[in-house]
Design a protein around this nucleic acid. Sequence first.
RNA 1: GCCCCCAUAGUCUAGCGGCCCAGGACGUCACCCUUUCAAGGUGAAGAUCACCGGUUCGAAUCCGGUUGGGGGUACCA
Length: 501
Amino acid sequence: MQSSTHVRVRFAPSPTGSLHVGGGRTVLFNYLFAYGQARREGGDGTLILRIEDTDQTRLVEGAAQQIEDVLTWFGLTWDEGPDKGGPHGPYVQSQRLDKYQTAAQYLIDQGKAYRCFCSRERLQEVREAQQAKGLPPGYDRHCRNLSQADIDARLSEGAPFTVRFSMPRSGETTVTDMIRGDMTFQNEHLEDLVLLKSDGYPTYHLGNVVDDHDMEITHIMRGDEWIATAPIHVNLYKAFGWDVPKIAHMPLILAPGGGKLSKRHGSTAMEEFRIQGYLPEALMNYLALLGWSLDGTTEIFSKQDLLAHFTLERVSPSPATFDYAKLLWFNQHYINHILTVDDLVARVAPFLIEAGLIDKTWLETESDRLALLTEATRLLKDRMRTLAEAPELMGYFLQDELPDYEAALLIPKKTEPAQVKTALDAVAGWLPGADLDNLEQTEADLRGLAESLGLKAGQLFMPIRVAATGRTESPGLFETLRAIGKDRLTRRLDTARQTFG
RNA sequence: GCCCCCAUAGUCUAGCGGCCCAGGACGUCACCCUUUCAAGGUGAAGAUCACCGGUUCGAAUCCGGUUGGGGGUACCA
């Protein structure tokens, strides 16, 4: 990066729904660039959150708030925005309409924009006609050279109009992209885009350029889908006489089969990953590696690690396919190896409460229930892939009664029902005098019992496991029995024995 | 159709002219550990570096073309 000491970047979502992972990755890179790279290199870095709610027809109630909430969950912070204000507010475009109107009027006065009175129907017809002729569809600049008399006449009759940008008709425009280099476009291919809609709201193009200038944005980091309009934006800056910020387009995130990542392939919204039990740090780690890498070898990055190492120069220009399996691996890795047990307990609790397995009182310090929850979490830590799996995994530790299970599970392969019955009876005889807190003793006792019954250890352990948990998989048997406790174990054993009539 | 972007194993990537007949990770498979399931350990398969031409003593790395994939082509962002 150049020696600029002043970096101001922004994330500008439109509140038309929940935040997509592509957007999540874009904010992340903005955040890492401002707070990581810029500050490391001796400058200051500022991240601005701006809500671009200029499409009144697609607005979703509460979406802006939800985006802020999910960003907070994700672990990101920003310096200026709707919630915290700042020197360049307001940070919601619908509250800055006068600025866009003033800007549009300025361009009209300069002869760099014009009012367009064309109806949507006419626009549609023009587009269809051009497509039919095999020409590139686009506005035919019909209103670009209207006489002043025509314009006045239309205005006096109160005709609705949009304001369009007068793109230069010849020459070329070069966009310098920080991760792709120069991209040159022939001006004749660029459209006279609508800047101001007939409802007085700006389009993305005007709103974005005006605000980025007004908010003194130094670096624009946005999705790859904006490349096509970037040359028009550059021309807009020139028309206003403003400096063009540095621009970087983030590589696209593609769906597994190709194309856009959509619901059809699985979750696409940040919020959904939260609900499905993904950890924000795992999602962040995964998303950071989608288009960026440090050395091709290091895989695990905490937010601090990312802040310490991220550089825009190492962002790849090529699109990346979203791999759910790898995300799941990261999540599992964080649960299994990075989180502490206490931390996991705190993360898993909301999911258990939601499932009705525990309630808030379980979390009171020094309660026996918290001890049980903690022990259950410790035992299942290595077997949990997402937080959402916790209720399913931990039920038999947390509940008094076991849900019904298939009696056939009690009978291991190559073992007769009669043998199992005898074995469980023997275990029931042993249990009252057993010391479950002594794991070594429990193991010695049960191995001895198996031997005396003429069974292999596994042939005895599996029926006990199923009787105790209702499942064929569990953490180590002796620790599992200890956590369940003698009382519940006795009852569960009785239930199992009764299935043999 | 037109404009633009991209191109290393199924996927994410390292590589920025010789160290690479290509390294790491996910996934897959095998083995070890083992009371089950995981986790962990070890190992294997998997890429003629999309293709074709150049440049060079030498190319995955530079250039051109082709093909393929993707994006844009709205009074959506």
